[in-house]
Design a protein around this nucleic acid. Structure first.
Lengths: 338, 338
DNA sequence: CTGAAAGCGCTTACAG
DNA sequence: CTGAAAGCGCTTACAG
């Protein structure tokens, strides 16, 4: 490939002049500039981004970490939406995306990985079990960072965007209560993410608000796994058989619940109503079509990207925290109890 | 951040010595090496990858282009599987992924973009309408490149991995014929990709093999769009009403066909059988569950990544072309005609 | 307006 | 084994 030096030689000017022409500086004669640009074009000049980045410390690249966790790699139904919206916003602003996949390096520090690749900012998505407050905080101190969803701890002082999980869980629970259900089993997710707690909170508060008292074993932890949710459902129903509804903290777990209910010879929604959370693509096609809480993932990705671009341009140190409303979608898996 | 110079100073050695220690060279005293490594660790040294890349011309990064096309951005149901498998293979080999999203630059040349970002190799996925033989060929000459799926032209001399589309289409058609169908409408995709032609070929050849004669208007082009497929189905059925089966070149189009048939008051599969192609996630949940051709996308991504890593290590100029078998999955949308 | 020079942080022959 | 030096391709004060 051509470099700035060759162009300078051909144009009969200095490399500084070429650099200025190429970067649109004003203090250069229009004529000289034109000539340089012509030659550059003729020679198919492409700036070497590493040489440039070495000086400017910018690579026009956004780093993305995601999915160290079961059910949240690229196989997660959410990721597609997040990526698609991030891609658009960030792409329009002139950035490419660097996805950290290298497993040969020491992955104990997000910060170090970012230094290594020289990204201008970072988006963290569902970074799973391996995340810790320290890792995220260290990163946040060193790079413009936005966290999407699944934050380890509520108290963490980082920029982040999430669904309003508590309100969503409240709406799901209220929906069941208003249909007439009194005994509602909660299949919760794991306990590492803020969102998981919020979905339990919403359930508890709605029950309390409507005067339903919850027994200890009414909240079970299904690890966001279809199989585990099925197992728990069977186990819990074998101990206590008067549940008329189940509220699962994810659609995948709701599928597991329905699997189990079918095995137990219960019809959904005639015998037991089931509500999920997420509204993944297949939820509308499931049999029965799943009543669930729709997460506005595109909007979440978009919002996170915009915040990140803002911070990259001007980081005033303010911590931003955006909560996107989630929406109850009533489909065929919920109905009034008999 | 610390650099090599500071470490050299602290260790009381030259920068060359530090560089050698850090990169595991042999011609350095064990004792010196140890000391350097200790200090580097103490100071949280991270090599500057841009300075290194400037010299080594390697960034340990694989570039990915995808989706300039309708229905094939990150919103494509396939992409997830491709990415997930690429991520694993490439990540194990010590590479990160650079996704070209920047829309502010001139995107007329893949090659130029790759030079700009300094990637070590490239994977092209479903790069849609904007792709041309020249663009792809130019890239192939300059960088280790593998194309997955959706190749513009059969003749193109590039490394690529695809499903065996023709055999898959043959199997789908044969399945319908063996059920007893004689009048099978083909809703094909667009006409820019090799795979699209192959799926038509498979249909034609199977029909021919079993002595079915196809009329001209039995092959319609639905642009891989659910809506367009629905429109075409209604239009074609209004002209000719004796089809007992439809074979669509994608699941999304099969959904569109079923949408249209429902509108026309036809039951699937009782009145008309429908077979799709792809086996996207929701196909099994659709009502009725869709009979379709399963593409082994994970295997495709894996194969493409392995080929790419091979080429990066040792490019002998051989063009590799791998065809992965696709598999008929019989579900509820196909049955014998009445 | 123009160019010589320093420098970003590293690696790589090469001389000792 | 060790270090001085050149150089990767660029940008950025600075002097003229």
């Amino acid at each position: 490939m051509t470099n700035i030096k060759k162009i300078a030689k051909l144009a009969g000017v200095s490399v500084s002049a070429v650099s200025k022409a190429l970067n649109g500086y004003e203090d250069i004669k229009e004529e000289t500039k034109k000539k340089i640009l012509e030659i550059a074009k003729e020679m198919d000049y492409v700036p070497n981004f590493m040489a440039r980045g070495l000086i400017t410390k910018s690579t026009k690249t956004i780093g993305v970490f995601f999915g160290d966790q079961t059910n949240s790699g690229f196989d997660s139904p959410f990721l597609v939406d997040y990526f698609s919206s991030i891609k658009n916003v960030v792409g329009e602003a002139g950035y490419d995306l660097l996805i950290f996949t290298n497993q040969k390096r020491d992955t104990s520090s997000y910060k170090v990985m970012c230094y290594e690749k020289g990204v201008d900012g970072v988006i963290l998505i569902l970074t799973g079990n391996k995340r810790t407050d320290e890792k995220i905080h260290e990163l946040h101190e060193a790079f413009p960072t936005v966290y999407i969803d699944s934050l380890p701890q509520a108290s963490l002082k980082v920029n982040f965007v999430e669904s309003d999980n508590e309100a969503g869980a409240w709406d799901a629970t209220e929906h069941l209560i208003k249909l007439g259900h009194r005994n509602i089993l909660k299949i919760a997710g794991d306990t590492i993410a803020k969102g998981s707690y919020d979905r339990i909170e919403g359930y508890k508060k709605a029950c309390q608000h409507y005067g339903l008292s919850i027994k200890d074993n009414w909240i079970q932890y299904g690890k966001y796994s279809r199989e585990e949710a099925a197992r728990l459902t069977k186990e819990t129903f074998s101990q206590e058989n008067d549940f008329t509804a189940v509220f699962a903290s994810s659609d995948l777990m709701a599928y597991g619940v329905i699997d189990a209910l079918k095995e137990l010879g219960k019809r959904v929604p005639e015998d037991v109503s089931v509500v999920g959370f997420d509204d993944i693509d297949s939820a509308q096609y499931f049999n029965p079509p799943l009543t669930t809480i729709h997460q506005k993932r595109l909007q979440m990705g978009e919002t996170a990207s915009k915040i990140l671009l803002d911070i990259i341009q001007d980081n005033d140190g303010t911590i931003r925290h955006v909560r996107i409303p989630a929406q109850l979608i009533v489909r065929g898996s919920s109905a009034a109890p008999k």
